[in-house]
Computed example of a mutant assay.
Amino acid sequence: MRIFESIINHKINTITAEELVKYANQFNISVTRAQAKKIAEYLRGKNINIFDDGQRTRLIREIAKAAGPQTAREVNKLFTELAKK
């Protein structure tokens, strides 16, 4: 299970705006390209573990500041879906 978590976290920490939009569309989550760009820029280079509740919560708060609370809720849904797979 650790390898799976590492792969998901690596993808989150290196995701591009285009990839974020693609994944959001797969899970029927509404994220604009502009919002995806802001989120991807924030994530790039950070070593965030979305499987850690505390880290994910802090990340979602930061996304809410950058892209708004509704987008943060949508991204949290996406992260939750990715963590379930």
Rank of each mutant, 00 (worst) to 15 (best):
R2P: 10
E5Q: 13
S6M: 13
I7S: 15
K11D: 08
K11R: 07
I12Q: 01
N13V: 10
T16I: 05
T16M: 02
A17P: 03
V21L: 07
V21W: 05
A24V: 08
A24F: 03
N25L: 12
N25C: 06
N28K: 11
N28Y: 09
I29W: 02
S30F: 15
S30Q: 08
T32D: 06
T32M: 03
R33W: 01
A34F: 01
A36F: 05
A36C: 09
I39C: 05
I39S: 04
Y42S: 04
Y42E: 09
Y42T: 11
R44L: 02
R44P: 03
G45F: 02
K46T: 14
I48K: 01
N49G: 09
N49F: 02
F51H: 10
D52Y: 12
D53F: 00
D53Y: 11
G54D: 15
G54P: 09
R58N: 13
R61C: 11
E62C: 06
E62I: 03
A64T: 08
A64H: 04
A67S: 13
A67C: 03
P69G: 04
Q70H: 03
Q70P: 05
Q70L: 11
V75G: 06
V75A: 04
K77W: 06
K77D: 12
T80W: 08
E81D: 11
L82K: 05
K84N: 15
